[in-house]
Amino acid sequence: MKARFHIAIRLLHWLMALAIFTMLFVGAGMVSSVANRDWLYDLHKPLGIAILVLALLRLAVRLSTRTPPLPGDMPLFMQLVAKFSHLLLYGLMLAMPLVGWLMLSAGGYPVTLGGGIELPALVAKSNSLYALLRPLHSLLAYSLLLLVLGHMAAALFHGLIRRDAVLSSIGFGKSRPMD
């Protein structure tokens, strides 16, 4: 049986992959560079909100469409890891930008999207909340990076070692049979 994710899921998957990789590099640049910090912050905020919007859209499409089945010969442990890691990915794609927005709100910093658009603060200014959310945002970023690397490793495992249809189910090339 040939099975693929819905075209909207595939488009959102790859668009978000690009946005998340960009965001991880921008975030790393922000904490390691003094000279480029301002323009990186100016990019980081709207990109974070874009990721949040895309994640919400992706979740809505994901909940309203069928997903291809995992290969019948895939061990139960691998199936559970796949399902749990996808839940974590969705959770982090939503949590990261929300925690960032909350953190900036608590710090009294505006979330600007460019063109004079400024999002409302989610909470009142609070130095103690800011001090709590700042390291949480970093922890979530490192967690997302590790999870994305694990996701990529699993995709390569399916594509190069198992040679099943899992990797092709999220791509745009020729579809492969699932079993």
Rank of each mutant, 00 (worst) to 15 (best):
G107T: 13
A155M: 12
V123H: 06
H151T: 07
G159V: 05
L87V: 03
L129K: 12
P135I: 01
L146Q: 04
S85A: 08
M96K: 03
L119N: 06
G100Q: 01
L136C: 00
L156N: 05
Y142G: 11
G116Y: 01
V123D: 03
L129C: 12
G100C: 01
P97L: 00
V111F: 15
G116D: 00
I161E: 13
S169A: 13
M103F: 14
L80P: 08
V166H: 04
A154T: 13
P120V: 13
A165R: 10
G159C: 06
V148I: 07
S138I: 04
A82F: 00
I170H: 03
L122V: 08
G150I: 08
Y142V: 14
R134F: 02
S105M: 10
M103C: 14
S143A: 15
L104G: 06
G100K: 00
S169M: 02
H151R: 07
H158C: 11
A141V: 06
S126L: 05
M96I: 03
S169Q: 01
V166Y: 05
G108P: 14
F157C: 13
L160K: 09
A165K: 10
H137Q: 09
L104W: 09
I117V: 12
L146M: 14
Q79E: 04
G108A: 15
L156G: 14
S126Q: 07
F84I: 09
K125W: 08
R162M: 07
F84N: 03
A155V: 15
A106C: 14
L102D: 07
G91W: 02
A153T: 11
P110Y: 13
L80D: 08
